[in-house]
């Protein structure tokens, strides 16, 4: 399945885009996605931390990704 990942803040600069696409297997998890992203964008590993969100909720490493989920990479937040 093809998934799109939205990027914000420093992640948008690392991706060079506000959205990237990846091809993944149908039972892929958040951990699998992190691994793939870090392979393609090694600068992610230099961040203090980052999370992934699925459909506007913070996701856990074992969560499964489904086609058409809205996925976003959330670098360390700094609002306020």
């Amino acid at each position: 399945m093809k998934i799109n990942i939205l990027a914000f803040g420093v992640a948008k600069e690392i991706f060079g885009s506000s959205e990237v696409s990846l091809e993944m297997t149908n039972d892929a998890t958040i951990s699998n996605l992190k691994y793939l992203l870090e392979q393609q964008y090694p600068r992610l590993k230099q961040l203090s931390s980052y999370m992934l969100a699925v459909n506007n909720e913070y996701a856990l490493p074992g969560d499964t990704i489904h086609e058409r989920d809205e996925i976003a990479i959330i670098p360390p937040v700094s609002g306020g």
Binding site: S48, A53, A72, P75, V77, S78
Partner: peptide, 27 residues
């Protein structure tokens, strides 16, 4: 305010005279 700063997906970039920095992005 304390929780907002920890959990709400909002980011700020500080602009200095010698460049820009995304706050808290790097250790």
């Amino acid at each position: 305010i304390d929780t907002l700063k920890q959990t709400v997906p909002i980011w700020k970039k500080e602009s200095f005279e010698d460049g820009d920095v995304w706050v808290a992005a790097h250790p």
